[in-house]
């Protein structure tokens, strides 16, 4: 098998990698947003329970989470496809990280913004929706891209629960032909080609947003 054949064989697993990524996003984005917002607004016991949930998904290693749900759910009578288990555990893990930047972004927002909204007679939900969230989204875009990269990389773990993603394809090919340097270089290359553009894009975003917020600080800092 030539390097090119191996590479092509690995790319056959791309659809699984992408499917799990997109399904994972469907868990990560809502969970990150809702958990972060709740953690910001709630108080007392309800806040503590939200924090516990976030910490559970964040502090337990994702590989352990995936195995835990993959193997435990059937014993309590819940049968989910490997794809769904993988996507939900990866998604919630990444989303739990994301929730912390949602909360941080809400806290970082100038308190005057909310007050100005109140002074205009807007309701709290309207302030969250029209004033806080749009400003947060901008600040959070770089984090979002970074979390997306983590999610894509995390999908390599589905190979361990026998799903035929790119990493699993590489292992299958290694059964057919003994050429580890070519196989694993091709596998690294496949992920690199997929993720390098996103990495570059994320860095560009970070610079752009960083500049914007710097300007903002300058304006707010004047004469204080």
């Amino acid at each position: 098998m030539s390097f090119f054949d191996i590479f092509r064989g690995i790319l056959e697993g791309m659809d699984v990698t992408l499917t799990v990524t997109f399904m994972g996003l469907c868990f990560a984005i809502p969970f990150g947003l809702v958990a972060g917002i709740l953690q910001h607004f709630l108080k007392g016991a309800s806040r503590a329970s939200v924090t516990m949930i976030i910490e559970f998904w964040r502090s337990t290693p994702v590989l352990v989470l995936m195995f835990m749900f993959y193997y435990s759910l059937p014993t309590v009578g819940i049968y989910l496809s490997a794809t769904l288990v993988a996507a939900s555990t990866l998604g919630l893990h990444v989303g739990a990280y994301g929730s912390q930047s949602v909360r941080a972004a809400l806290q970082a927002l100038d308190r005057g913004q909310v007050e100005a909204g109140f002074a205009l007679g807007l309701r709290r939900p309207a302030i969250l929706w029209t004033i806080e969230l749009p400003q947060m989204v901008r600040a959070m875009l770089p984090t979002f891209v970074n979390q997306l990269i983590q999610l894509v990389k995390g999908t390599s773990l589905v190979a361990l629960i026998t799903m035929s993603d790119m990493t699993h394809r590489a292992k299958e090919i290694s059964q057919l032909t003994f050429d580890p340097p070519a196989i694993y270089s091709a596998l690294l290359l496949a992920y690199f080609i997929l993720l390098y553009p996103i990495t570059i894009f994320g860095r560009w975003l970070e610079r752009k947003v960083g500049q914007g917020s710097g300007k903002l600080m300058e304006d707010h800092g004047r004469g204080v």
């Binding site: 990493t167 690294l188 992920y191």
Partner: peptide, 12 residues
Amino acid sequence: IRSTPLLVQIYF
């Protein structure tokens, strides 16, 4: 390093 999965690096 940042654009490839840890699992794959370990295998490599």
